[in-house]
Design a protein around this nucleic acid. Sequence first.
DNA 1: CTGAAAGCGCTTACAG
DNA 2: CTGAAAGCGCTTACAG
Lengths: 331, 331
Amino acid sequence: MARAAGVSPTTVSHALNGKGVVRRETEERIRQVAARIGYRPSAIARGLRNSRLGLLGLIIRPFDTLDSFIPAGVDYFLRIAGSASLTAMEHGYSLMMVDDPSKRGRPVSALAADGYVVTEPFENDPVLSLLERERIPFVAVGADIARRDEFVTMDTLADKQAVQMIEHLVSAGATRVALVVGTDRNAWNLDSRDAYLDWCARVGQDPLWIAIPEAQGERAGEIALDRFFGEGAADAPDAVYCLMGRQASGIARAAVARGISVPDELLVAAGSGALQNQTMHPTVTAFDLQPEVIAQRAVEAVIRLIEGEAVETPFEAPEALLHLRESTQRV
Amino acid sequence: MARAAGVSPTTVSHALNGKGVVRRETEERIRQVAARIGYRPSAIARGLRNSRLGLLGLIIRPFDTLDSFIPAGVDYFLRIAGSASLTAMEHGYSLMMVDDPSKRGRPVSALAADGYVVTEPFENDPVLSLLERERIPFVAVGADIARRDEFVTMDTLADKQAVQMIEHLVSAGATRVALVVGTDRNAWNLDSRDAYLDWCARVGQDPLWIAIPEAQGERAGEIALDRFFGEGAADAPDAVYCLMGRQASGIARAAVARGISVPDELLVAAGSGALQNQTMHPTVTAFDLQPEVIAQRAVEAVIRLIEGEAVETPFEAPEALLHLRESTQRV
DNA sequence: CTGAAAGCGCTTACAG
DNA sequence: CTGAAAGCGCTTACAG
């Protein structure tokens, strides 16, 4: 490029980046030559020089325990990924998806991003430890429950949402609310459970809850119903709050199959709406956590960290939107 | 790192990469020091040296015309993205998603990948031209219809699928089959349409088809029904093949709303199943294009190109699986 | 068996 | 206003 324009690399760099001082005409000529020969500075060389590639990493931790990388019907994380990509683009960054860069056999490039967004980290998550040790900026979406105040974190407000939904179920006629959570040890599962137990203690209800592995997906329906309505079904619930939309679908479907009417005998609600909750029959009441907004805020926060600006922590997730549907509306 | 181990960078490089010759004990010691201080070679420096970052790019072209980056209910591309990420990982690469790296204002890093998978390129797609000009290896998933034999391409077999589905509709009782495609000028839309027109000519049916912008999503239902059943509805169809699952949902829903029974009066089928086709009522017959397998094969092909191996072209997509559902089964 | 040197393509402090 | 030099952290051909 420098040769093509008949100047030094220094001058090319100055002209194209508007740094030093370059005579107007020289800059003009350099730009023209660049356009003509289709010159694009190497992102890699620039990255080496600036120790910044213009690359962000998105680490969706729950994928680590799910059976496939993007399981069917988990649109929450897909909406996260799409919005994160777009937001990154808008700020001049590319975005790559990696699962766990600390795993053996992971490409070195998995750790080459300028910063990371880590969704739903586990308790004492080794990925966060690694990023911290490498001094790579990152934002946790949902706290590491063992180290709540150590990292820049978006509070996803699972506890508030649990209370809000339980109260909705009660106002819809529930007298005994059960809870279904996943088994990953993250803030989403554990804060929801704790909020539920608190609520039970407060209103004097005997807690009834079960943790089912995320990878079970809709199969959680059968498992939960066996637990709630099998054998000694004396204390059977008349409402269930499931964190995952797929669990809620599974429960609604399994309940109907067993002759338990939804919503007349059992109210069902989901903490994070999946697409099928809108289209199945009956449709299922769910929160829309606004994953697009979550991803946007998290990406913008990590970019600020990368660029040396301050980020308040914890900062809040957008408000969850409660979509009322057939599964909690008795007529 | 070299200092910490008391050897030269050369020896570190040799030891850690198993290249040159290093005394057993020296290598051992270097590995131990590396583990102790948590040394990881810089992917960027290595990338500059090898002109290879270990990074792949996934360019999903239809996003360019859709209204949001990842529209709700388009699980096809999400399954592509997930599987592509996973496959890349398994081969020692990371994967980033970009929309159009040739757009102004795109981060330079958007062109820093070692190779790209470009799904559903447009006719004379400028992205393919750019990659070719920059001599960056890439694989097209679906042909650039203006340049079918110029690039390494996966043939997605849209024409065969169209014929197969139309014949299924006929065997399910259709006497007049209409077609709904999108407006993007890509092989998926145009090859399907051509196959349909050929089929019409062959059996002597008067063609009845409409192209509706992809971004309309389910709203395509109303639009298509206005066209097929509005005003001069003399030649109304009794079956519709829609390429997109969302279009099929929209049509089935809109038909029922207008008092047209599905499947009794109108058979509906989709060329690429969306999740809601399985959960809505009636469920909609659709192809599962096996996007996971498509992505896996495409990623493996581009890796072979990057590593200098030959790739046959065109190579074939996996067989589309036909899922028969209520929308094409009269009882 | 080990290391000094050159170079990947940029940017930046500095000299002219 | 422009350019020569150094250096970002690696790898590789080559010398010892």
